[in-house]
Design a binder for these strands. Structure first.
Lengths: 347, 347
DNA sequence: TGATTTTTTGCAATCGTTTGCATTTTTTGC
DNA sequence: GCAAAAAATGCAAACGATTGCAAAAAATCA
């Protein structure tokens, strides 16, 4: 197909076509469009203008094949189970949104997937196949088997999770232990004596938060009573069920709850409200994440805010570092207590 | 680089390498891997096994260049404003999750973007550049300028929005007018006399819901009073502010609210609860979407459920239809009233 | 057995960009 | 005005998979 025909039809223009139009060679056009100083400035702007006026756009398939780079990062939501609860966790979207922003600002596109849909071999599917240059896995799941497998195949990889986990790959996440401790501390100074920890001990991030809870109790010489450690899936409905059942069977034996996430906290709050238990007068409650609903619930939820925006930037930087052949290690992201109505504030 | 070297190093295998290993030609391997019946069954399984044992994976960059197909669909979140509110709207994640599922089941990957990050010319960036085969735009925004531009450039496109909008591209969305009508009807039969509509009239989906609201009033011979139409951004905080202000300035002159989304309803509910206004005893309230929080709030929120899973499948099917050169039109998705505690139920 | 059909495989061009190297053009210095 | 250096451009070979067509192998028939 010659240039004339291609211009007439709605076939996409190629570098070659542009070259004919500009009266230069293909390589010159290629260099001009990437603003290569090898090409005379005058020529560069002329060609760039021509390209713009024709709505030209580089064919990324060809470019990727030639350069062996995709400029794409696959983000995998590593969900634990297939409930709707976990797949629509508001916290996930927050992270995905921030990752998208961080990636785009570095010139990368985001390919979204989740652990249920992607084939088993992530490294193969995304990297060998040249669909993406690297992987960001959100969530460690209950075991890190799959992630470990990816890491071993030497694929650029960053994981959102608990950074204190021992691993051969970089993990970025909040200072969960400190967060758990601050949350508990906040309840204690507000006057709570019998504080529940509500969360899933098999989940690494939650385990760290639980350790923080223990730290705070210890610091205040409160003995740890296993009856106050309540295992519960990290969904709001599980929390609701658990708290309801607990009150039914044992009465209101606690006056504070450290919840391992906002969704869990909100589920617990609902159980309390249904029974007309005062918040924070009877029971104080602290969540974790600071999702939008935390501010919106009534009473609004005191929580430990995770700085997802910064976390996303850190993750992307670590990944890019790996693209350059260097390797990177785990990082803790600072957290922050956001005191709202669900807890009493000390003076 | 010869085969020996490539096997020793960790360079990716190519079809060519596999061919050498199998003692056949490249084309045979290519066909065998795509299970082309042109190749003897015996040979096919032998080569497939060989490929599997070497963790072989087709290079999609090369494949896309050759076939001119990417097997990728770009999903663009067409956000209205740049607040955190809109970017972390739980309803969006629900749709994105369902789209991902629907796309994967048809063999497509999902490239995520949003209207703030993507460059202006979507058709160029995603389609001409061969990053994706088609576009799914979630949300019509306040004007459909950009979308219109894409549609005109003859790019496979489906939009999530209000299907009754006049357009040259297929729109998939809920039966918003019917939904608005059912919601209002539900309040009326529950005894409400003075029903507020809370939403953004510039937003097409919301406008349809508003028309449904009018339909229901009319059907019950209730005259439409413009004081009961409350314009408000579709975020929970805007709704909270609006209702707070309204009560402050005019007192409690209404006994029912039709909110244009669950987030808006939740914001309004918070404003009511803060003033100890009974829900549903003093004011009944109905939302739209059925996000997770609707069930979790207290009182739980009566709402119009949107069937996002089915919608996602429909959208993907329509897009694939377009890949085959046919064109498709808009579709209405059925909605459903989910009656919960925030409204009185008629007997 | 030899001709003909059917089945199975291989050849080679192509998709559009990038880039090392060669070549041409321009500038500089004397 | 001419050689040498510097700047600008062009040539052509990859990158790896796919596919129409030709060729070879096997099966069928007479």
């Amino acid at each position: 197909m010659n240039l004339g025909n291609r211009l007439k039809s709605n076939k996409k223009l190629t570098l070659n076509d542009l070259a004919s139009l500009a009266g230069v060679s293909t390589s010159t056009v290629s260099r001009a469009l990437s603003d290569n100083p090898l090409i005379k400035k005058e020529t560069r702007v002329r060609i760039q203008a021509l390209a713009a006026s024709h709505n030209f756009s580089i064919n990324t398939a060809a470019s990727r094949l030639r350069t062996q780079k995709t400029k794409v990062v696959a983000v995998i939501l590593n969900l634990i189970d297939h409930t709707e609860q976990s797949i629509s966790d508001p916290f996930l979207l927050k992270i995905v949104g921030d990752l998208n922003q961080a990636l785009n600002s570095k010139g990368y596109d985001l390919l979204l997937s989740n652990s249920f849909m992607a084939t088993d071999n992530w490294a193969n599917y995304f990297i060998n196949s040249q669909r993406a240059d690297g992987l960001i896995v959100v969530g460690q799941g209950k075991s890190d088997e799959k992630v470990q497998e990816v890491a071993e195949s030497n694929v650029p990889l960053v994981v959102w999770g608990d950074p204190k986990t021992k691993s051969h790959y970089p993990i970025v996440g909040s200072n969960n232990r400190l967060g758990g401790s601050i949350a508990t501390e906040h309840l204690i100074t507000g006057g709570c004596k019998n504080i529940l920890f509500l969360g899933d001990p098999e989940h690494m991030e939650m385990t760290s938060r639980y350790h923080g809870y223990q730290d705070a109790l210890e610091a205040h010489a409160i003995s740890l009573d296993s009856a106050f450690t309540v295992a519960c899936d990290i969904t709001s409905s599980a929390a609701y069920d658990k708290i309801s059942e607990l009150i039914l069977s044992k009465g209101l034996f606690f006056d504070g709850i450290v919840a391992c996430s906002d969704m869990v906290a909100l589920g617990a709050m609902r159980a309390l409200k249904e029974r007309y238990i005062g918040i924070p007068s009877d029971v104080g409650i602290v969540g974790f994440d600071d999702i939008l609903m935390a501010e919106l619930s009534y009473p609004s939820l005191t929580t430990i805010k995770q700085n997802t925006q910064r976390a996303a930037q850190v993750m992307v930087n670590k990944l890019i570092t790996q693209f350059d052949g260097k390797n990177s290690d785990s990082s803790l992201i600072d957290i922050e207590l956001v005191a709202r109505q669900s807890t009493k504030h000390s003076l």
